[in-house]
Write a protein that binds this DNA or RNA. Structure first.
Length: 544
RNA sequence: GCCCUCGUAGCUCAGGGGAUAGAGCGACGGCCUCCGGAGCCGUGUGCACAGGUUCGAAUCCUGUCGAGGGCGCCA
């Protein structure tokens, strides 16, 4: 539709000897201004050497005489906007599109062209359960993966397990100290789970670090499965070290004089590649820094995918430049590496901020969150804002209030749609003759369904939103903003509840043909709600 | 001191060059002989500040103020 209009505008402009670059078409904030609007007359006024309003009038006249399909009228408004009013038939046809394509194929885009994207997120240390600080990256990463896939990217998700560094060593030592009743090492791990896990230690455990890692991974994986988040690959840092690849990388860097020795340590000349200073690769005590295997890890990922996306917490933003400079140093194309940082989330409970501290062991685990406010609500809560926002989540409000916790509002719309379809199926089965279709299996929308009966304002609003889904999806994908989908879902749910309130589907006082048309609409809405909920990574209940 | 992000309604947040800036919550007031009331409808206030760019700025640029995060041979 939009492409058709753009072409028409372009053709009309050509008649006046004008050439536009990008022709913007957007939905006006107010419906009174039409369904679609273009500002070409404003942007081209100078080139045309006439007032924007006058150019717009000429354009509108030209477009009106072109008799474009599904276009009711073209009007000029304001300083020179060209507004298109679309016919109901355009919105009604979305019902047919949705029913024909279904959950799997409506709003399935292909601009990703099968490009291989490797998406890494969470990558928590294997030193304990996942906690609230990981939840945003988890919800964001999972939703982004779903969105990228639906846009035609070949996505593989990955969790990097840092099982070589100081943190795991420290964690293992902490477990041992708790078990033996000796003092914790400096900066050691605290918290209830440390004590619990330490009690599970016995003499059969010969490699404490490995045991601690596996214990952590098992715990984290269980939490993720509660959140319905799965990874295509869990990548152990130790794999890079043990296969000698990190060692080979170091030798190569030294041979190329990109690394050098100083003060007993080995340094990488990242300051030549954009970083503010050189960085240590091997500490003077012989240990590797986090950076060294991470370079090898990203090089490995780059050999497996066209594009990398890393999702990090904002507390690591400083590391972005360091990693990219290091990758530039080894000759990688850093434009293939995208790093998204999510801002820290502040949690409130009982009116006060919940302080999270790894140092004191004062943490809220994701398991606790799920138990407190459910898995779907946890994911949805973290998905409502841009990753850039410094959001505050009030646990009490999430638990108690239904609209601060819109996942139920949206899911309830889906439940209602299913309930109506069930009801209709029962009535049909009762032998009313016409039959309301087979409930959720209804083929409504097929031949004979009079979609033109769907002209109530509530119905039109619902259909407009369904038409928008592909656009919303594209925006959410290219801008990496899953919250767009969530915002759209809330609007669609609202439109559905309004429709439900004002437009009865079944009943003796509803003409049979209208019932059929509305059943098609309900089925289409249910499909769209399911698509959106799926993209957000939450469930689609049929009853609540 | 330097770097990143943010500052929009009483609260939590959308909107990120277009026309009269939105939603939920909270507050107040309506709607059940109704396919599930976890619902629907109505009522109010607001773009931190100052310059600049533009036909047009909440949106882009600069500065000021404020908030969060970061500036390790931690990860």
């Amino acid at each position: 539709m939009q492409d058709t209009l753009r072409q028409a505008i372009s053709d009309a402009l050509a008649r006046f000897g004008l050439v536009a670059g990008e022709i913007a078409l957007e939905q006006p904030a107010r419906r009174a201004h039409g369904d679609l609007s273009s500002n070409v007359a404003l942007t081209l006024a100078k080139q045309a050497q006439q007032p924007p309003r006058q150019l717009a009038e000429s354009l509108a006249q030209q477009l009106n005489s072109a008799e474009l399909s599904h276009v009711e009228s073209v009007e000029v408004a304001g300083p020179g906007f060209v507004n298109f009013r679309l016919s109901d038939s355009w919105w009604q046809s979305v019902v047919e599109d949705v029913l024909t394509l279904g959950v799997d194929n409506y709003a399935r885009l292909d601009f990703g062209q099968g490009i291989k994207v490797n998406l890494e997120f969470i990558s928590a240390n294997p030193t304990g359960p996942l906690h609230a600080g990981h939840a945003r990256g988890a919800a964001f990463g999972d939703a982004l993966a779903q969105i990228l896939k639906r846009c035609g990217y070949d996505v593989s998700t990955e969790f990097y397990v840092n099982d070589q560094g100081r943190q795991l060593k420290l964690f293992a030592e902490s477990l041992r100290a708790v078990k033996d009743g000796t003092p914790l090492p400096e900066d050691g791990y605290r918290g209830d789970y440390v004590v619990e896990w330490a009690q599970e230690l016995n003499d059969e455990v010969d490699d404490l670090r490995r045991w601690a890692r596996d214990k952590s991974l098992a715990d984290q994986q269980q939490t993720l499965s509660k959140l319905s988040i799965s990874f295509d690959r869990w990548f152990n840092e130790s794999e890079l070290v043990e296969t000698g690849r990190v060692h080979a990388l170091l030798e190569e860097l030294l041979a190329q004089d990109k690394a050098y020795e100083k003060d007993g340590a080995t340094w990488l000349r990242v300051s030549h590649y954009g970083d503010s200073q050189d960085r240590v690769l091997v500490k003077s005590n012989g240990d590797l820094t986090y950076l060294t295997p991470d370079i090898a890890y990203h090089a490995d990922k780059l050999s497996r995918a066209d594009q990398l996306i890393d999702i990090w917490g904002a507390d690591h933003h400083d590391y972005v430049t360091r990693l990219k400079s290091a990758l530039a140093a080894i000759g990688e194309d850093t434009s293939r590496v995208e790093i998204i940082t999510c801002q820290i989330v502040k949690l409130m409970r009982a009116g006060t901020e919940v302080k999270l501290s790894k140092r004191t062991g004062d943490l809220i685990s994701i398991d606790e969150l799920i138990e407190d406010i459910s898995s779907d609500a946890t994911k949805f809560a973290y998905l409502q804002q841009t990753p850039d926002s410094h959001l505050t989540i009030d646990l009490d409000v999430l638990r108690e209030s239904s609209m601060e916790n819109p996942v139920y509002y949206v899911q309830y719309a889906h439940v209602r749609a299913c309930a109506i379809l069930r009801q209709a199926a029962q009535l049909g089965a009762a032998g009313s003759g016409a039959g309301a279709g087979g409930g959720t299996e209804t083929e409504a929308g097929g031949s004979g369904t009079r979609l033109e009966l769907l002209n109530h304002e509530r119905e039109l609003e619902l259909m407009r939103l369904m038409r928008n889904l592909p656009d919303e999806l594209q925006t959410a994908c290219t801008a990496r903003t899953p919250h767009r989908i969530v915002a759209w879902l809330k609007e669609l749910a609202s439109a559905f509840h309004g429709f439900y309130h004002d437009c009865r589907v079944t009943g003796n006082d509803v003409p049979e043909e209208l019932t059929q048309a509305r059943l098609s609409l309900v089925k289409a809405a249910q499909i769209c709600l399911a698509i959106g909920l799926h993209l957000a990574g939450v469930s689609t209940p049929e009853r609540m």
